[in-house]
């Protein structure tokens, strides 16, 4: 395989997958620590009605109105979940279940309206994403990675994810102290006058932004996997939050690369002339890494824990 084919067809997809994984993976640390892992699940489901609504209102398939719609839907769902949880006095999981399934169902019905408008949007796409469609035809050699005018021709979804990643990293750096505080002891944060609800809402807004930006490229299932698996893996490897963040970033980014490579070239290695879903494979790889960590992690792995119990 020549360098230019790789750069034109595989490289943008790898970037897309890894960047989507990275921004979700970093924020996922706080979701996992706050026992809100499934917020990522809920938000990535309600993105569907959001983009459909964005389309129906503006009538264009531009990504901006659709992303705004998705962000709006994400915030509405968070508010509704809180409402159902309080009024129904049920556990947060059940409240999420009520809200995100209903909003997803509404999205599915709304989709029928877009079908009437003759535009292609479908549920499969929302779930699976379309990682492989990213191309960078302007590239002709490795040197192009250093040429800004050719880099600018990368798919807009890649550029968008670069921006979102920068925003996510800036957010975590700026609010690291507050995020740590409200995740650990929200009550104490409130007595300090650092509103746990305010910081929690900021976090959810960033989660929604990352989910929406990543969703378009990789589909909602990979988004959910990336919010959870890298953070869960890192959680098993360290007792320091800063280390955990860095580890989760590494796991997320490399799952993106390894997963894509397996999906695109793996079947050929074992003699099949085909390729499998890259988004799916990336999530599977992240899952496998997590399984390895659950078993072999030096201190919190199953083997180490068994040994500790025996000693």
């Amino acid at each position: 395989m020549s360098a230019d084919i790789f750069l034109q067809f595989d490289f943008p997809s790898i970037l897309l997958g890894s960047l989507a994984a990275l921004c979700c993976g970093l924020l996922g640390n706080f979701l996992v620590l706050r026992r809100q892992s499934l917020m990522g699940d809920a938000i990535s489901h309600v993105v569907l009605p959001g983009i459909v609504l964005g389309f129906l209102i503006t009538g264009t398939v531009d990504s901006l109105p659709m992303m705004l719609g998705a962000g709006f839907a994400a915030l509405v769902s968070v508010g509704l979940i809180e409402l159902v949880r309080r009024l129904g006095k049920v556990e947060p999981g059940a409240a999420m279940g009520v809200v995100f399934t209903s909003m997803f169902a509404a999205g599915v019905l709304l989709l029928e309206q877009t079908g009437a408008a003759g535009v292609h949007l479908d549920v499969e796409h929302a779930l699976y994403g379309n990682l492989e469609s990213a191309i960078w035809l302007e590239a002709s050699g490795w040197g192009d990675l250093l040429r800004p005018e050719i880099l600018a021709a990368l798919p807009v979804s890649v550029l968008r994810l670069v921006v979102v990643n920068m925003a996510v990293i800036a957010f975590i750096l700026a609010f690291y102290k507050e995020l740590k505080l409200v995740s650990f002891d929200p009550l104490f944060a409130d007595t300090l006058g650092i509103s746990s609800r305010f910081v929690g809402t900021l976090l959810i807004v960033m989660v929604a932004v990352a989910a929406v930006a990543a969703f378009d490229a990789v589909g909602s299932i990979l988004v959910i996997a990336m919010f959870i698996c890298p953070a869960a893996t890192a959680r098993l490897l360290t007792d320091r939050l800063s280390t955990q963040l860095i580890l989760s970033g590494i796991v997320a980014f490399s799952s993106g690369i390894v997963g894509y490579v397996f999906a695109a070239f793996g079947p050929a290695w074992i003699g099949y002339d085909m390729s499998v879903s890259a988004a799916g494979m990336i999530a599977v790889v992240a899952g496998i890494i997590q399984v390895v960590a659950m078993i072999f992690a030096p201190r919190y792995g199953v083997i180490a824990r068994r040994r500790l119990q025996r000693a």
Partner: peptide, 15 residues
């Protein structure tokens, strides 16, 4: 939670 004793005490200074 991934926090040390020192981290927790430092939280008292956050405000």
């Amino acid at each position: 939670f991934p926090a040390t004793a020192l981290d927790v005490v430092t939280m008292g200074l956050y405000r």
